[in-house]
Design a protein around this nucleic acid. Structure first.
Lengths: 328, 328
DNA sequence: TTGTATGCGTTATCAC
DNA sequence: GTGATAACGCATACAA
């Protein structure tokens, strides 16, 4: 594998000039430039990332660490990955226009994953951290070492950069719709996993909305954001005898799973029971989330003195037939 | 940000010893080890990846380059990303147990993406290349520079490592089922994009299967693997007057989109028209694809002299109600 | 416009 | 067991 030295030799110039050509410095004679370019092509030279990183004190790599849920599953429908996948694509699409690349790592909550993320911090210029992959204290130590931006973290973060979705508002809109619009009174909430700040916030907001009404919450179930867990919850409800009038789910995947299970049991949706995802997490907000986070991280890498800021993205309530509204 | 020197100073040892401790060398005195570890913790030291990469001549990063389809879409349902996402997760899950990390980049077919992948090769130890992101000749040049494993590439590759799915067999099974099992004779094939070797192979195999029967193919439509394109194809069929007896789709997403569109138009599936994904690409094979590819790449990185090998993974025909079979 | 020389943070090869 | 020290491949400040 060839180096700048090889290129320099072949082109009959110094390595400094090679470097200049590589980076498109304007103060290189056109002829020299040609010679160098030719040499580069001939040798198939590509600058070594490690050497560049070492020399320029910047690796042009940013990391993304996210929770992976329900890994061993066979079927895509079982997996609740859409969140991270969307974020990954969004982040990558931002980086695509730059020199920067995306390094990613997934894992289950726990010490091993935290260690992995920690040591990964040596390979990147900055880190995007999705959801609650480690305790706040540890995250702060990490952020002292290297720029960190939190995606969909615990609300109320003040010391670190964060980009999140306005879950509370979304849920309030949904609750208002179910209670005021449809007049439902017996509601079930199918919550997400405990290690998802988003999920917890949605549940809390829904509880609060119900508390302020004459409706009641019965019961609260929880899943892991996968369609399979939504189906399991539906089965649990079927086993209890009377169904609630509506089931609000913490994400789309679980709603899909629940609906399918109800239908399989001969229950019509929304005839016998309304089923609705809580927030349209699968829509534009996720792409935005990734995009904003990536932009913010790059900004902080360039200027580590930036004051920490939290960006809350608006949510849109999407009315679907499954909640009992007429189609279209 | 602290370095080995800082750690060495604080612990009162040489950098060599620090390095030994970091890598768990057994020939360090336990006491020394303690002192060094303490210093590391105190300073929050993490070895710099670039420096390590430069010194050890290996970056412990592998790259994954894949096509991204239908990027600008708003809704997840519009996107046909499931293929790459599954592969990403599979690859990552292999790497998770190692020192190695995953660097990824997506792009649309074209020169800019090819250049990006080429220059990215300086940042990684090896590259996983999904589908047809560049001409075979260029890919070979790349593979001369750095280990490359192709995922789902063009069948017949002999010079490079490749891991692919046995599309032809899957399609043959499907065709046999539709023709022999159901007795359908007027079939439509909803093909995938031209830049997907997988898609092309499926279409070719289906054509061949039909050619060897008394059925006929009318017509062949094509989409981009997204549900939206499946729906569009369904609309196109609806506009033509008589529907085929069955529509075989190159992937699940398009089948879903088509089914939904038919149902919306009051056409029952499979009553009026059967709709079926061609191969269960969304099932286990994809995880396997990623896993095998990652394993193979790591093997080649360790020994670049390995003879090129192509692994063809078996496909499973999954019978679903949408093709006209009774449920369960 | 071009070349020289040094530093970047680690690892590894020697000595001790 | 441990410590000097020379690479590793590139960028850049400084000279020319």
């Amino acid at each position: 594998m060839s180096t700048v030295y090889d290129v320099a030799d072949l082109a009959g110039v110094s390595t400094a000039t090679v470097s200049r050509v590589i980076h498109g410095s304007p103060l290189v004679h056109p002829d020299t430039q040609q010679r160098v370019r030719r040499a580069i092509d001939e040798l198939g030279f590509v600058p070594d990332g490690s050497a560049q990183g070492l020399s320029r004190r910047r690796k042009d790599i940013i990391g993304l660490a996210a929770l992976e849920r329900g890994t061993d599953e066979i079927d895509i429908e079982q997996a609740g990955q859409l969140f991270v996948d969307e974020v990954v694509h969004a982040v990558e699409s931002v980086l695509r226009g730059t020199e920067c690349s995306l390094l990613l790592t997934f894992g289950q909550t726990g010490e091993p994953f935290q260690r992995r993320v920690w040591s990964l911090s040596g390979k990147v210029d900055g880190l995007l951290v999705a959801e609650e992959i480690m305790p706040a204290s540890r995250l702060r130590s990490l952020a002292k070492r290297i720029p960190v931006v939190i995606i969909a973290g615990r609300p109320g973060e003040r010391e670190l950069d964060m980009v999140a979705v306005d879950n509370a508002a979304g849920i309030r809109a949904l609750a208002a719709h179910l209670l005021g619009g449809h007049g439902y009174r017996r509601l079930c909430f199918l919550a997400g996993p405990a290690d998802s700040p988003d999920a917890q916030e949605r549940l809390a907001a829904f509880r609060q909305a119900i508390a302020g009404s004459d409706a009641h919450l019965a019961p609260v179930l929880s899943g892991d954001f996968s369609a399979a867990s939504g189906a399991a919850a539906a089965r649990a409800l079927l086993g209890r005898g009377t169904l609630p009038e509506a089931v609000a789910c913490a994400n789309d995947q679980m709603a899909i799973g629940a609906m399918r299970e109800f239908q399989r049991a001969g229950i019509t949706v929304p005839g016998d029971v309304a089923v609705t995802p809580a927030v349209t997490t699968v829509n534009q907000p996720l792409r935005d989330l990734g995009r904003k986070a990536a932009a913010r991280l790059r900004a902080r890498i360039d200027d580590r003195g930036l004051p920490p800021r939290t960006e809350i993205l608006p949510t849109h309530l999407v009315i679907r037939a499954s909640c009992g509204c007429p189609v279209r």
